[in-house]
Every structure is written in structure tokens, then in C-alpha cells.
Design a protein around this nucleic acid. Structure first.
Lengths: 145, 145
DNA sequence: GTTAATTAGTTGACAAATTCAACTAAAATT
DNA sequence: AATTTTAGTTGAATTTGTCAACTAATTAAC
């Protein structure tokens, strides 16, 4: 009988693969994983600073800066200087950015839908319970470092 | 009340972060994520072909070839031509490779241990049940494409 | 309230990771 | 025997990510 930690690690390998399969699909889009995630955060958090994005997604600030620069160049986002702190720009999605986000969102949604298509209502409820259970058990250990 | 798919996606974002934190720790080692995973597969599957590794980890064969080349150069693996099929080499860990694997394995083990250190026995059992529950519910949908 | 230390973000140079297509050689198919 | 497929390699190119140095603004210290 395997120990808890080994089972945990088995699951991590398994779920890494699930996430990989889901992400693959995203490759029909012109956006990388991180780009998609950044668009998501901007959409989610309304006008948001680069620092706030960094707090959500762990990534190098230099790299983030470059991705945002490209987004701006592509007309996906707009920046507005913060009134309280002139160092920070608050970033929002433009109409074009919102459209890009929606496309990614819809694709991702469909992916998951396909993944759970065979599950009954009860099974879907169980699935979500398992996910929330894991999160509950691990939270406290995964607070922002 | 959020729908199942949205909760699924929430969990994916959450768990991506958990995996990211765990992987971070691995950065004290001289090996990248994929390298660690490849070492794991070689250890797990005994003498194994590059193709078999590719079946487990989804990655470009050219890239895998290069990583394996470097492993060989570093003395972590040895190759032996397959008796049945002269195109394939069967890869094994050398003593040095095994040592490298064990170091990674121990570090990863400790990481998880730290993550669940606050959990009681019952909670750990629940955690594993949730993980196995997810896997059971999703398997069939996640067969090799 | 001027100096020092932090913080937000940018930039360029660089290194690492990944992709891709062309290639060799062996095996399987027709 | 000729063709196609499969395993693996290689080099060139791109993408991705890191790092340190930098500017400008804010906060803390004295």
C-alpha cells in the first residue's frame, strides 16, 4: 500500500498531464499559456497594476513587463497612470483585448465541457466536491509565500 | 452559484499554482522540471526507449533526444541497443543517474511532506480520497489522445 | 525636510527551453 | 523489391524566460 505522499505525487503527475492536455488545445490560439493567464487576470481584476498581476501569477517582473508591452502594441490593453501612485499604471482590456479574452475563455470552457461530457450530474457534483476538498485541506499551506 | 465548469477551471488555476510552488523548490537542483520527470520515467520503467518516455511525457522527440544526449554526456544514463529492433536504444540509469534521481526524489518528498505537515491522519486520508476520486471520474476522458 | 532605502516598472543582453524540418537507418507494409 | 512508417538525431531558428542595471516615484529615517 502506497503512502500518502507517494499518492500525492502520483496525482501531481497525473494532473500535470490533464492540465497539459487542456493547455494544448489553447495552442490553436495566438496566445501562450502565460499570455492567456495574464489576459484572464486583467479581465478578472478590472484595472490592475503589473504588481497585482505578479501577485497572482508567479513570474518575473521583467518578463511580465515585456508581455504587457506587446499586449499594448497589439491593442489588447490600455494603461492609465494611477492617481495615488505615479509609479503604477492600471491596466485594462480594450474592446479588442476583451474579444481575445472571450475567445480564449470560450475555448477553455469547451475543453472542460468535453472532458466531463460523460459525467452525470451527480458525478459532476462529486468532482467539484473533490476539488474543493483538496483546496480546503491544502489551504493554509499554500498561502502567498 | 458558480457552474461546474467554472469551478473546475478555478481548481485548475489553483492547482497550477500548487504545482508551481512545488516545482520551484526543485530549482535548487541542477535539473529542470522535464529533466526531473525524464529521470523519474527512466527510473520507473527500467530499461526504456525514448518513444516509451515520449508516451508518458508529452514532449517533442527532438527535444527529448537532446536531453538524453546531455544525460549520457553527464554520465546519468547508459544506452543499449534493443535486440529486437535496432532502431531503438534502451535507456537505463547509471549509478550516478540513480543518485541524481534519489536526490530529486527525496527533495520532492520533503516538499510534499511540508505541504501536508499540518494535516491529521484522517485529513491525509481524505486528501488522497479526493485525488483518487478526481482521477477516477476523469479517467476514460483522459486516455491518450 | 533632506538623505537614504524601497518599490514599480522598463530595458537590453543573455541564457535556457522548445520547435521544426530535414535527415539516417531500421522495420513493417504492400 | 519498392514504399511507407517508425525511432531517433541534428542544426537552425524561435520563443521563453532570467538577470542586472536603470529611471522615476514613494516611503522611511534621521
Amino acid at each position: 500500500m502506497k503512502k500518502v505522499i507517494d499518492k500525492f505525487r502520483d496525482f501531481n503527475r497525473y494532473y500535470t498531464r490533464v492540465l497539459g492536455l487542456l493547455d494544448d488545445h489553447l495552442l490553436n490560439s495566438p496566445y501562450s499559456l502565460v499570455e492567456a493567464r495574464i489576459l484572464y487576470e486583467i479581465h478578472e481584476q478590472g484595472p490592475v497594476s503589473a504588481s497585482q498581476i505578479m501577485a497572482e501569477i508567479d513570474m518575473d517582473k521583467g518578463y511580465l513587463s515585456k508581455v504587457l508591452k506587446q499586449f499594448a502594441k497589439d491593442g489588447l490593453i490600455s494603461k492609465q497612470l494611477s492617481a495615488e501612485d505615479a509609479r503604477v499604471s492600471l491596466i485594462s482590456l480594450t474592446a479588442k483585448g476583451l474579444k481575445a479574452y472571450h475567445a480564449l475563455d470560450a475555448a477553455s470552457h469547451q475543453q472542460i465541457e468535453a472532458l466531463i461530457s460523460a459525467l452525470s450530474k451527480a458525478e459532476r457534483r462529486q468532482l467539484v466536491e473533490h476539488m474543493e476538498g483538496i483546496r480546503k485541506l491544502l489551504s493554509g499551506s499554500t498561502k502567498d509565500s
